[in-house]
Amino acid sequence: MIKGFFREYAGILGGLLILCLVSSFLSEYFWSVNNVTNIVLQTSIVAIVAFGMTYAILLAGIDLSVGSIVALTGLVLVIGLTNGLPFSLMLPIALLVAVFCGFSNGLITTWLGVHPFIVTMSFMGIWRGVAMLTSDGQAVSLYDNAPFEYIFNGYLFGIPFPIIILLSMIALNHFVLSKTTFGRRVYIVGGNPEAAAYSGINVSKTTIYSYMITGLMAGVGGVMLASRMFSAQPTAANGMELDAIAACVLGGTSLTGGRGTIIGTLIGALIIAVLSNVMSLMNVDFFVSLIVKGVVILIAVGIDVYKNKRKAA
């Protein structure tokens, strides 16, 4: 089991370790408890959104609207709370909105038979527009709401609460994809939708459910981001879909569908987080850091493609 794990993730895990090793030479501060916690906290939101993205990419699809869903969910929550509604009511409502966004993506993708790239790109604009309209384009701040602040700033058993959320999302999604019949259906539909249909799998239903999970994960990310900022911003998480896609791809999820795991995506997200972290520790220019991140993704994908070609030959 453990042996299999290391064999499966040897490449990216090795990449992550080398990156950490190099980082520890570049900055003595890197391995400090504070910094490591900081990395995990920073990556938690993107990683959870990327877990949702993994479902879409496993289906050979994509979800470009997750960034907009993150912003919209945060706004729904915070606007509700500022109007005096209880957190216990607003949290499920906000998450339901996120699930509904995902449902729309899945429904229209299967109904029109259009590539999800087009559908989710349209919804990326639509949800962002809705977010702008409901908030007049302004950030909505919220202080002195204990449960809301606790989400990203609280501690449980001495562990930061966002890390608890991250761990439970890892467990939940890993379980769904590897142990349930729904997860199996996702892999089969992504691997060959025609064979799936001929084997009696409801391809549309599987697709719609998957995008609902993608939406839900973006919603969880949206709630966490709002709590972290003590506010909801209609422009929040702009471009987060690209970070999420990058984490999936780095983690070995194939854009042609049917191949990829939650653990892989987690490692992919960590690689990006460590890279950003060490570059900011070293005061690397932000613009340069963008270039470095892009190059690293290209190298990682190149290695993956090369490995697969060698396996096929």
Binding site: I188, N192, Y198, G258
Partner: peptide, 9 residues
């Protein structure tokens, strides 16, 4: 190959 199997799996 098209309708019976998931070749990658």
């Amino acid at each position: 190959k098209e309708e019976g199997l998931v070749l990658d799996h």
